[in-house]
Design a binder for these strands. Structure first.
Lengths: 176, 176
DNA sequence: GGAAAGAACTTAACATGTTAATCATCTCCC
DNA sequence: GGGAGATGATTAACATGTTAAGTTCTTTCC
């Protein structure tokens, strides 16, 4: 009944044998979907191992980031772990409750909080890391080290390309 | 006043403190992080426009997928929109409440539900699509059409590479 | 033809994503 | 020095991700 009046939006070549099996070819090939599926394919490899150690992906990112520094302010941690403030707040509360991290106030600014990994947290990291390394190595071997490096290069370039594109709503100029 | 939360998370380098910084180079260059940042950079472009129309990214994915078919079963919809069952259930409930989609039971199997987009839903899609196309075109122009195609090719290859890698926990064999 | 196993959702429960609001502190400037 | 505004962090509120459990219906198989 209500059917494709949207077909001209993404002109697509007429399919061949996949008439029934592959409906929204063009949709599934959009850049956001490609990135989403690729990332999910990668993370699917890691999640079970992390889960076995009682860690979520984000908790792992935070602990992993903390191992590289003595201590770090919360805002800076959000930047490197690529988490939004509210998510980070919740996770830090949990990790602190589990004694995996330590938190204190900054010396010269009572607003800022400084976080560091605890000995217990380090031990946990050391328990998980070997498996993660094995998985990462398997991915690299399957996909090819050179190709993987090239992919990361292109992803970084994409990020850089879009860095300037203002995230203005783009509605006004598009509609008028 | 409180606009730009995520924007400040990525202030680009070039700071005074950049010398002492750059601690977790290796961490920030991991494949999952690269994919996450790239996808976020892309979605940041689309989210404001969708939001102006009262749609989340996932709701848009569903409606967009529905425009390509007459009707579709829930499980198949979950596959093409790349959503897990529980998320899809919740979103469909909401979209049905807003009369953007219609749902009925399958004829020969009372377990299955069949979903289709409503006239109202189609109208909404048609209102959002032009802006989305403008944004997509801008991204393509900035990054390069050829490079974009190559990136998607490589992302698909990555997905395919990992398709076989069992998601077995990989803990037992790694620990013993 | 009916119990058991499977299938297709759906609900539940918890963790995170996302935006807005709040709270506390700090900085600037009069 | 004190108040307006900026800043760092948290909380609030809602939507989704993720896994497990529950519901309803179907198929299998004895």
């Amino acid at each position: 009944m209500a059917r494709k009046k949207l077909d001209e939006i993404r002109p697509e070549q007429g399919d061949d044998a996949a008439a029934r099996r592959t409906p929204m070819r063009e949709f599934s090939r959009s850049l956001p979907m490609s990135l989403l599926r690729a990332r999910e394919a990668v993370m699917r490899q890691f999640r079970p191992s992390l889960r076995n150690h009682g860690l979520t992906e984000q908790q792992w990112r935070i602990l992993r980031a903390l191992t590289a520094v003595d201590e770090i302010e919360v805002t800076e941690l959000a930047r490197v772990a690529f988490l939004l403030g509210p998510s980070l707040s919740r996770i830090l509360r949990d990790l602190e409750g589990r004694a995996l991290i330590e938190r204190k106030a900054a010396e010269n600014d009572a607003r800022r909080a400084v976080v560091s990994i605890s000995a217990k947290g380090l031990k946990l990291i050391e328990a998980v890391a070997p498996t993660s390394e094995v998985i990462y190595a398997a991915i690299t071997r399957r996909y090819g080290a050179r190709k993987l490096a090239e992919l990361q290069e292109m992803l970084g370039a994409l990020e850089a390309s879009l860095a300037g594109m203002g995230a203005e709503d783009a509605e006004v100029e598009a509609d008028e």
